[in-house]
């Protein structure tokens, strides 16, 4: 098996005068060459820390990491030739440069031949629908355009392994799709390329990734193809319950016998609870709690498990941080 990225017992502790934060707590990971690998986890799980170690910007506190077979601690100079990283929402570069100038500039830090790069930039701008903006100043771009430009920056240096840290964060549906399509296309172009991406979006991981690791509090809690992860919740009955707003209910629902996990999100003034029931019989207990709360039931559906459900079960809570309901 050809390994593109490997970590062994990787740990990272951030120390400041006031406190210590264990951001990674023993990560063992193997990403195969040619894979689109997703790292999924809630805020503060350690996703960005993992990426920053792999791209040689941060040293691990202990453990080892290899990128393209090279040690990121000792062989970091060689690693840097082979990687690129793009983070969502980043605002890098120089506002008064034109888009194509900025892209050219970053490529020069990799020693790319200018003429070849200029052609490549034009081609990628075209494909991502940015040709019109090629001569616009970077400071005048919308955030969606800027993010696409950043993706192009990651691609023009022909990395063997591309790291994307939340590449579609805050993008509208169309722009996010363009970015995902481009990643897929780039991967298809050369089967030895590898992508590692972090995301909060289940749908994105499900759609884009061959394999996914779910990270929580610096540890990998599950790993597998999206289908395998969904399998883990296959036996559970997943019930969606829409309720009118009211007092906090999540803890009470979790306490009901037969409720394996529960999460909630709010949409259009309605609280949508997702409940994992280990038996259908648990539903009557759930209904008693709902009645006692005085909330009104706006809808109940049983449905197929999603990656999100697998996440909720493994991590014990939903991806959305705010769970007041």
């Amino acid at each position: 098996m050809d390994i593109a990225v490997e970590t062994k017992a990787l740990r990272r502790v951030y120390r400041s005068r006031r406190q210590e934060v264990v951001a990674l707590d023993g990560i063992d990971l193997q990403v195969r060459r040619g894979e689109r690998f997703g790292v999924l986890g809630p805020n503060g799980a350690g996703k960005t820390t993992l990426i920053k170690i792999l791209v040689t910007l941060l040293l691990p506190s202990s453990g080892e990491a290899f990128v393209d077979g090279l040690d990121v601690i000792r062989q970091f100079r060689e690693v840097r030739h082979r990687i690129a990283m793009v983070s969502g929402g980043e605002n890098v570069g120089f506002g008064m440069l034109k888009v194509r100038e900025q892209l050219w500039m970053f490529s020069q830090f990799y020693g790319m031949p200018s003429a070849q790069v200029r052609r490549h930039i034009a081609e990628l701008l075209e494909r991502l629908g940015l040709s019109e903006a090629a001569d616009r100043r970077v400071s005048a771009l919308s955030s969606g355009m800027r993010q696409k430009m950043n993706l192009i920056r990651g691609l023009i240096t022909n990395p063997r392994i591309l790291f994307l840290d939340e590449p579609t964060v805050a993008l509208d549906v169309g722009a996010a799709r363009d970015v995902r399509d481009e990643v897929r296309r780039w991967m298809a172009e050369d089967p030895s390329r590898t992508v590692i991406l972090t995301t909060h979006y289940m749908m994105e991981a499900d759609e884009l990734c061959d394999r996914v690791a779910i990270v929580n509090r610096g540890r990998i809690v599950a790993q597998g193809t999206p289908a395998e992860l969904k399998q883990q919740v296959q036996q559970d009955a997943i019930v969606d319950l829409q309720l009118s707003p009211g007092n906090r209910l999540l803890d009470a629902l979790r306490a009901v016998d037969g409720v394996a996990a529960a999460s909630v999100s709010e949409q259009d003034g309605i609280d949508r609870f997702s409940l994992h029931l280990s038996s259908d019989a648990a539903l009557s207990g759930v209904m008693r709690v709902v009645e006692g709360s005085g909330r009104q039931i706006r809808g109940v559906q049983k449905r197929e498990p999603t990656l999100e459900d697998a996440f909720v079960k493994l991590v014990g809570r939903g991806m959305a941080e705010e769970e007041q309901a």
Binding site: R82, F94, M105, F109, Y110, M112, R160
Partner: peptide, 25 residues
């Protein structure tokens, strides 16, 4: 793996990093 020489990258970097300053002025 083949990649541009350190010297080449060194000089290209100098020119590229000077560029925004020059253009900016």
């Amino acid at each position: 793996m083949n990649h541009p020489s350190a010297i080449r990258i060194f000089f290209k970097t100098i020119v590229a990093r000077a560029y925004p300053r020059f253009v900016g002025s």
